[in-house]
Design a protein around this nucleic acid. Structure first.
Lengths: 209, 209, 209, 209
DNA sequence: CCCTAAACGAGACGGTACGTCCCGTCTTATG
DNA sequence: CATAAGACGGGACGTACCGTCTCGTTTAGGG
């Protein structure tokens, strides 16, 4: 049984749940219209029809608010069952690229990552809210491929974990770089080429350690 | 024959070249100490012992200044001749990772990339000053490998160009993601693993088109 | 009956009355030390231990602030009862001269008058805050002299108003010119001579229309 | 004997006399269009088709330049011979009022007077260039009136000098105050009334010392 | 007739203040 | 207690001028 959360004395007026949602939605709206650097909490407050203090009561600052607003976008990601490992990966990479193509993600994500290089708490928040939360996709995909017999069951758990991390860095990094720096669309053709290279590379590497 | 450059009527006091250098150096220094978001042009001016207007006369704003300050860092990159393609790539990726590990690069680079999602001129500046300028390494590396017989001469130039872009997105993206998002060091072991996957993938892909 | 003031919806934190007073006092202090042209709102803010925005929230700019700061000085003027019209006038002219001799008045007053030649709103503010407010002295003095029998009750109100204006222009103008342009003290001797000329002139003029 | 002026070695290119005139004219033009506070030396330089340094070589700053530019306006004043002292005075006061009504005089004159309260050299320059230079009018007028027998020859020279100063303060002060502060025109009617009061006052005062 | 030295135009320079924007905190009254 | 409203102290912005400087160019005497 789950013990009840350590209720911190719920006296006084309770916080409005509607306000939370309105603030996050207003943040995404402002990201689309203004981008990260011109987004101001005063503006978000006005869009959400909320006082500035109501935002500060919930988030320490702009960075944390944006992390939470953007994190929700990535929860849409699903691992489609397209029959083969390659097709599954292509599917999820395309979804990932589609999210990154949206201005509220583009604009906010890189900015908070940049900030996180000097703010450990922020980096931890990003990892927890966004990155680690999506590693489920890699694990799920591998399990499915093993069930299909496309991949052998891994023997060395340490090695397996390192491989997951590598996959994640390569996939996320390549898509982000293609989208933001090269400013070219990560479309189906590109994803197909990229996926082939990735899978061949992983297959080859696992054989020739 | 080279026609003489269209002299733009050099009247008035010429701009100080020393100021340019001092400003870029001060910018990198401030990036190390303060990070991008707390860097102010007033502070840079003070460090460079220069007036704010002297900066604004040369750069439109903080973003463009940081791009130029960071771009200089990447000019250090050299393709070492380590005998094999794999070793050469490992060498340059390690150098790239070393630069990205420096706080003045970390802090500034992602921030301007984030800004560039809403500013086409800035993105173009980044591409011209940083990205395209380093594609020379990929081209050089391929040429050397072909000379060694490790790679066949490419037949389809369009395909070759797409491959260069893909390599660049994968290498730069993966190293950046590893360094900034995963916040793990891109050390020799990781680079070796990554390079093996990349080369095997590329080799496999080129055979099985 | 007095209808209630049109309450302007007093929501939010009310403005600090202490800040108003501190700002005006700081302005006078700065006028003394720096003079009008070297007075900066940033300096005033620092002296008043107040943010610049707090000043801009209340006054549109330096000119209006100085008008209000100087206007308070002239509220000290009192019409003394010295027994005769001539002595009363001498008394008030001396007080006026004493105020004009103070650096915070000298420095600020002429400057805002100069500015007002190109700014109708400013001129109106000066007239309302300073000039018209002190015409009370002329009216009071005339009433007292009429009560004493020194002056006949005026018959033509238009003529009377013109006379008040003339007196004001002559008195204020002469004292200001003596103090600021000629840079000689408007001391008792000068005031006595000036008052005699003024009264004899007015007396003669009223008889010989 | 007057020794020759200490010629400062007249070598090199001589200063352009045309520039002097162009600068003063441009200053007056800028005073009309912009007023004193928005007048900048850069703007004057541009209007005069002259480099900023050419202005600074001749005048220490904006204040001194404006004094010289305005002073020229007052050299137009002439004492007309209208037959009687009263009419002569009315004539010159009207001329004075006409000059003061011009925006280049209004705007500049009060401003430099204001500045002069904190700058003795500037006050001296104003007195020498503008005020004392026009006292000739008072002296001329008195001499003419004495020739006509309207005024007796003065006996006490000190008293006479004090009277000139008083007249000047009263006349200049009243007209300035009327024009700038009261912002009413010093037209013929007003001047007639003012002159009558002044002359009657002076006449009465000289008899009843 | 050239030489010389100052004046000149142009515009960059180190500075100061501007007036605005936003931050994150506070002080009200209201719910 | 939470909330809407908005004033507050503070700090950076990007701009406008200041008065000085450093260039290359022009221009009148004096040798």
């Amino acid at each position: 049984m789950q013990s009840p959360p350590p209720v911190p004395r719920a006296t006084g007026r309770p916080r409005s749940a509607a306000a939370d949602a309105a603030i996050l939605a207003a943040t995404r709206e402002a990201l689309v219209e203004l981008g990260w650097s011109k987004l101001t909490l005063g503006d978000v407050a006005a869009r959400a029809a909320v006082a500035k203090t109501t935002i500060y009561r919930r988030w320490p600052g702009k960075n944390e608010l944006v992390v939470d607003a953007v994190a929700e976008l990535f929860d849409e990601l699903r691992l489609p069952d397209r029959g083969t490992l390659a097709a599954d990966i292509e599917g999820v990479v395309l979804q990932f690229a589609a999210i990154l193509a949206r201005p509220e993600a583009k604009s906010g994500l890189m900015a908070v990552v940049a900030e996180s290089t000097r703010d450990d708490a922020l980096r931890e928040r990003i990892r927890a809210s966004i990155v680690d939360r999506q590693k489920r996709l890699v694990l799920e995909g591998r399990a499915r491929a093993q069930a299909r017999g496309e991949l052998p069951p891994e023997s060395d758990p340490g090695e397996a974990s390192r491989t997951v991390d590598l996959i994640f860095d390569v996939v996320a990094g390549a898509v982000v770089h293609r989208t933001l720096v090269s400013a070219e669309p990560a479309d189906e053709e590109w994803v197909r080429g990229f996926t082939r290279v990735l899978l061949l590379g992983l297959a080859g590497a696992s054989q020739t350690v």
